[in-house]
Design a binder for these strands. Structure first.
Length: 273
DNA sequence: ACGAGCGCCTGTCGGC
DNA sequence: TGCCGACAGGCGCTCG
């Protein structure tokens, strides 16, 4: 479930508010690591030592990364293909996929759950170690149609894998990329430098729209990981192969682009060189 | 610079 | 029914 809108939803929940508990202000008393490879930096035993006694002073998102500034240093987490970050009472039972637990001084703990063990957690004094190479935030002011157009021209790559390259733009994954390309009428395999200025403007608008709608819906919930998001009910092409295009009625197709399942309308999204 | 192939993991689904 | 391969919301690596 983890693309920008889902991570944003998780972060907002972790921040609490409205009477709900928050990770902000919590002091880490102990750390449990049940799968060592989850800890990307430093090694797991150092990781524990570094975290104990630290206090979380904020919870933020950058691309698909969760970012927890501490009183000293920074904690980052990435869910990769599966998983969740929960804030819960220490009384709750530990679930089978709970890989890393941060026990706070009082009542609560934060739990990194990750079925496929692809997720990663970092502790570092320098955020650049983790998020230094990320492209712009798609919902920030410095991501403009002009910027997008110029960057598209600067590369000659298939548009879909380029949009999913986190150094190009931070936060898009398979779902929101397919949806944004559909909305803007761009074939997923088109060379990035074949896009016109008008194409780039449409794409920029579509990216921001689909992400905002995703956040408004609290993300998408599919398969066995359900977290209450509703965006799956608004998919126009993702997982819609064989159903009629909402705009022209042509059957939605599924192909592979850059090794990833890709859904598009062959009539609305014409390939051009 | 770019794209393909593959590894990392666990679970589900469709075909035979 | 049972098995087996393909596939899944991601990303880093190697190779050509």
């Amino acid at each position: 479930m983890p693309e920008l809108p889902e991570v944003e939803t998780i972060i907002r929940r972790l921040k609490g508010g409205g009477g709900a508990p928050s990770v902000v202000g919590q002091r880490i008393q102990s750390v449990e690591v049940n799968w060592g490879k989850i800890i990307a930096l430093p090694d797991p035993s150092q990781f524990k030592q570094n975290l104990i006694g630290k206090t979380i002073i904020d919870a933020k998102r950058r691309g698909k990364f969760m970012h927890f500034p501490l009183d000293i240093g920074h904690l980052f987490a990435h869910l990769r293909m599966s998983g969740d970050m929960r804030l819960e009472k220490k009384l709750e039972s530990v679930e089978p996929y709970d890989r890393v637990l941060l026990n706070f001084s009082e009542d609560y703990r934060m739990v990194f759950s990750n079925i496929r063990k692809f997720g990663r957690i970092w502790y570092t004094n320098d955020p650049k170690d983790v998020i230094g190479k990320l492209g712009p935030e798609p919902l920030s002011e410095n991501f403009t149609p002009q910027h997008l157009y110029e960057e598209l021209q600067a590369h000659s790559r298939q548009i879909k894998p380029l949009l999913m390259d986190q150094t190009f733009i931070a936060g898009l994954g398979n779902i929101y990329t397919d949806e944004a390309l559909y909305i803007s009428g761009i074939h997923p395999m088109r060379p990035s430098d074949s896009l016109t200025k008008a194409d780039a403007e449409h794409l920029h608008h579509a990216i921001q729209n689909v992400l905002r709608e995703g956040i408004r819906s609290l993300g998408a919930s599919i398969d066995w990981i359900y977290r209450g998001g509703q965006f799956q009910n608004y998919f126009k092409v993702y997982k819609k192969e064989g159903t009629p295009c909402p705009r022209c009625g042509t059957s939605i197709e599924k192909i592979k682009v850059g090794q990833r399942g890709t859904h598009f309308c062959p009539r609305c999204q014409i390939f051009k060189e």
